[in-house]
Design a protein around this nucleic acid. Structure first.
Lengths: 163, 163
DNA sequence: TGTGAAAATTGTAACAT
DNA sequence: ATGTTACAATTTTCACA
């Protein structure tokens, strides 16, 4: 009957067990609860309880599959900087949604400063990149200018898990 | 005896079943195999077989936990553009490793063009951002210049999964 | 809170289509 | 390559320290 409660965005304190569980799941999110418990040094039931608590507290926002753009025929990565002309709030949101939904777009950063949006994209090749920009980005009247940087490599950082 | 074979980076063709499985795991990577099979419309054994094949082919590179920087006391996101002076290959790699390992660093882009590295970071506040830049980025002699952009919001895009 | 053991669910392997 | 069945492993629940 009860729906999920809205995820808290409040700060949460983690103990060593929580950190161990999260670190393990950051490596392999499909690790069994039993393996997780062994690694964290607690009973399986405790581990399952902790995991649920971590989800509920909003620390663990999801466990998701990561795909290889290369294996799916998109070996060329780029950052497309998008600068807008007008900034009507409504229209910015619409554009934001559109850009986020384009095939090949991995991440969209809404930023302050020189640019308005940074798009991290993966495409099949130079022609596909050009087509993406011309047909799906610069076509929008709000977009004043774009600038594209080739991405040689992307690495996941250490992240936000406490030591 | 046999170790894992090196993941192929060759292009792979997916059928509807593969796409359904991957789409489901992109939402919830801990979904049970039974649920996955139901969603993809195949038997459980088939689903398990497909999943293994997707891993082996290199399309599915991993299933990982995503954490909330906000819930862990890092509500301030920024992009730090790093420009280098010298570009000795060896030193660039060392610096790359160092930057990737800094706490709060989510992603490092090695790019061509105006800048050399783009760091997406999440920190506790303005002071922490300043400290991160001054103590861990600009301290390196190779770093000629940095420029920081505030990030209002980050969104995951549609990604590289075929329609 | 954390634990251990039973009950319910799930994953896996063998074999047939 | 897919599905069915049977068996092994795992998760979950709950009474209790």
């Amino acid at each position: 009957m009860a729906g999920e409660q809205p995820k808290k965005t409040q700060q949460v304190a983690l103990d060593g067990t929580d950190v161990a569980i999260l670190a393990a799941l950051a490596e392999d999110g499909r690790m069994t609860n039993a393996a997780l418990a062994a690694r964290a040094g607690v009973a399986e039931s405790t581990c399952a309880y902790r995991l649920r608590a971590l989800r509920d507290s909003g620390v663990l926002t999801g466990i998701r599959a990561h795909l290889s753009p290369e294996a799916l025929g998109r070996p060329l990565h780029a950052i497309i900087k998008v600068r807008l002309g007008s900034h009507s709030r409504e229209l910015v949101h619409t554009l934001y949604d559109r850009l986020t939904g384009l095939p090949g777009v991995l991440t969209v950063f809404h930023v302050g400063g020189d640019d308005d949006f940074l798009l991290h994209v993966a495409v099949a090749g130079p022609e596909a990149l050009r087509d993406l920009i011309l047909e799906h980005v610069t076509v929008h009247p709000m977009v004043r200018q774009t600038e594209t940087q080739l991405v040689f490599e992307v690495r996941e950082g250490r992240g936000v898990l406490p030591a």
